[in-house]
């Protein structure tokens, strides 16, 4: 590849990095009022999470008081109870289903998006609509046929069923997001790379993927979160071997006895990996969303 191609790519990436840090005109237009509004909105959205964490650190009796007590005695006994009830296999199953399905989604959606944006196939808008149409049917309507099919092939309570389902469920969203994002890659850069002798795979790997990193990160995170939190198929298609963490969570709900503190502890623990990953990738997530399908 020639120096000119790399320079163009570098300029493009630097421009986008600058935008993502809020150093452009947009930041200068905001005033203190908007800052306060943003903070209030943030606190409103964060309040339930903070409440969940606080409740998880109370005893069941304190967690059940009405009106709620904010800062009564702090205890970690609820977290101990989670490990006593064997949260480990559920987390492992969730990680397995989410990570593998996300990798599969990326492996399929990036080439698909490439074929729909950078080198569009014929009637590509129809193809996009077809992808979207697969999300029209409510998941609950598909549950029974899927259950019977999975039972027929003898794969009930098998984690690979969830991997396949989550891949299929997230693929349309991923293709839409990636298509929007790849459409922003300047064609001149790809043409320059082509002139320099780069083939499709080389262009995809050395030009498109680095430029689309925020989009890939955002898409990955969204697919991961959707898979991690999925409950309907997990509760119906798994039993004791392949159950995931959302199924473990609801097991704390009891019609007899107090459970709020333990449920909050379980919810906090199960949310932790997703929260940290989301926090780490927040700028890419926001940019990916603003440049992607939601644009």
């Amino acid at each position: 590849m020639s120096t000119s191609t790399l320079e163009k790519r570098g300029t493009f990436l630097n421009r986008r990095k600058k935008d993502s840090r809020g150093e452009g005109d947009i930041a200068e237009k905001g005033g203190p009022v908007w800052t306060i509004v943003a903070w209030v909105a943030t606190l409103l959205f964060f309040a339930p999470v903070a409440w969940m964490v606080l409740t998880s650190l109370h005893t069941e009796a304190d967690a059940a008081t009405n009106p709620p007590t904010l800062f009564s005695g702090i205890t970690f006994e609820n977290y101990g109870a989670l490990f006593d009830r064997g949260v480990g296999p559920y987390l492992i199953n969730s990680a397995m289903a989410s990570i593998v399905s996300t990798l599969l989604v990326l492996a399929l959606s990036i080439p698909a998006a490439y074929a729909l944006s950078i080198r569009p196939v014929e009637k590509w808008t129809d193809v996009m609509f077809f992808f979207l149409s697969t999300k029209f049917l409510p998941a609950i309507a598909a549950l029974l046929p899927i259950y019977l099919l999975v039972k027929r092939v003898g794969m009930l309570d098998n984690i690979w069923v969830l991997v396949i389902l989550y891949t299929a469920m997230n693929l349309p969203i991923a293709v839409w997001m990636m298509q929007s994002f790849l459409a922003e890659v300047p064609k001149e850069i790809l043409e320059a790379a082509s002139v320099d002798g780069a083939g499709v795979l080389r262009s995809l790997w050395s030009i498109v993927v680095p430029m689309a990193t925020p989009g890939i990160a955002a898409t990955s995170l969204i697919c991961f979160i959707f898979s991690w939190n999925e409950f309907l198929f997990a509760v119906n298609l798994t039993a004791t071997i392949s159950s995931t963490s959302p199924v473990f969570l609801v097991g704390f709900i009891s019609s007899q006895g107090l459970f709020l503190a333990k449920l909050c502890a379980a919810a906090t623990l199960v949310s932790l990996p997703v929260l940290i990953a989301g926090f780490a990738a927040q700028d890419k997530l926001v940019r990916g969303l603003s440049l992607g399908a939601v644009k």
Binding site: F83, G88, P89, L91, I276, F279
Partner: peptide
Amino acid sequence: LMAGAITTALVTTACAGAGGGGAGGG
């Protein structure tokens, strides 16, 4: 931080697995 997230996921699952009471584990 990303590495921390992955490590957290792995550590929590590993620790939990070690302390698990057999529920759901097959």
